[in-house]
Design a protein around this nucleic acid. Structure first.
Lengths: 212, 212
DNA sequence: CTTTACAAACCGCCCAGTCGGTTTTATAAA
DNA sequence: TTTATAAAACCGACTGGGCGGTTTGTAAAG
């Protein structure tokens, strides 16, 4: 086997093993020996590919980021024409994907944070770019950010095993977050705030039933 | 000094130390020796008050829960008359409190999760009760849950050090989440969904929902 | 005197990282 | 094609420190 592909296979196996361990046993059980055992490699082999444990975490993080980056660009290509706010739609869909992906890919974040909080700088900066794009395209930037925050809340609370929501509710809420039509009723021009209670009713036949 | 108060002081010192360590060095650095060093107690003293490390985490978790419980009931008493959805308002305010409290109290959750995911059962069950109350009182339960999720997203993403939002944006978004008037424009009677959806939903006709 | 709160040395285990050695691949001279 | 040499990938025993937890001793409270 070619040397380059041999290395790549080993690195890959190690990272897959790391994900499996985190998902099965929790981030606290992720050790270099465990990775070696799970991947079939020896400890030395793992250490040859990654000089330190932090390097493993970093590679893991970058791998996950790349994966969702790809999902993102594919989704973006699909909706960039049909949606008025493609960046927001893409982010919401990506977060939903992360929340429903069985391998609990986002757990890599937890592992990284426990071991070395500085590693979070990478995903944060990436997220800031996206957030800027979302703001640019939004008629009501704050509302867009709140929809983003809602998706993150669903994802992270589920990740922590402390979501009080059922799986079906989960899906329904994500669907509503993604549905632009559901939110157009209360968009506010940037910089202006008003305490109004009348209903513009652009999107629905039945008005709210109960008001204070 | 009285024996009972002496014990209480020691337990308190240990827990304060634990919080300080988590906030300063991250959850991965929380060790019994570190707690002993930080609190001024000896390791034996710490172990006398808490037979195991898990007991420390559990006590820490209960302490934080009690703290926010108190905040909750106080806030609830204030708004129970003036708001149409006092449970939701209280939860949102409590989450905001957790997000802005300097001691990063909620970090105890992360520490607990890393060490022993089972400990999350307590806060989750408490959260489910509250979620039920929120649903009961809401004209549009799903929208209420989404506002809750938005607050959680703001809190947790900030906790992870991966929030792309500035401090001022943070506050502004929380304020908007709390403002009932901002959301009345798109309430939907429970059990009914607008047909305008541009995104196909996976679940439909899930059955009748419970109304207050 | 008995019990409780604390101190400090200590134990065994686990973990990240090291090291000398072996196997596999790459290069190239014979 | 064969052989020689170097480099890269890999192995697994080992080390030193840190960890959770125990044990023994001491002083204060009751």
């Amino acid at each position: 086997m070619d040397n380059a592909t041999r290395s790549e296979r080993s690195r890959n196996a190690a990272l897959e093993a790391a994900i499996a361990i985190i998902a099965r046993d929790g981030p606290g059980r992720l050790t270099l020996d465990a990775i070696a055992r799970e991947s079939g490699l020896s400890k030395g082999g793992v250490m040859h590919q990654f000089r330190t444990k932090e390097a493993v975490l970093k590679a893991l993080l970058e791998r996950q980021m790349a994966h969702f980056e790809e999902f993102s660009t594919r989704y973006m290509a699909k909706v960039s024409e049909s949606s008025a706010s493609p960046n927001l739609a893409t982010q919401l869909a990506t977060i939903r994907e992360a929340a429903t992906s069985p391998n609990s890919a986002a757990l890599a974040l937890v592992a990284a944070m426990v071991e070395n909080p500085r590693l979070m700088a990478l995903p944060r900066e990436r997220e800031m770019e996206r957030m800027a794009a979302i703001r640019e395209e939004a008629a009501d930037p704050d509302l867009a950010m709140l929809r983003w925050a809602g998706a993150m809340g669903l994802l992270l609370s589920a990740l922590f095993g402390m979501s009080p929501l059922g799986k079906e509710e989960h899906q329904r809420l994500f669907a509503r977050l993604l549905d632009d039509g559901q939110w157009s009723g209360l968009e506010q021009p940037a910089g202006k705030r008003a305490a109004k209670s009348s209903v513009p009713s652009a999107t629905k036949a039945a008005g709210p039933r109960k008001r204070a």
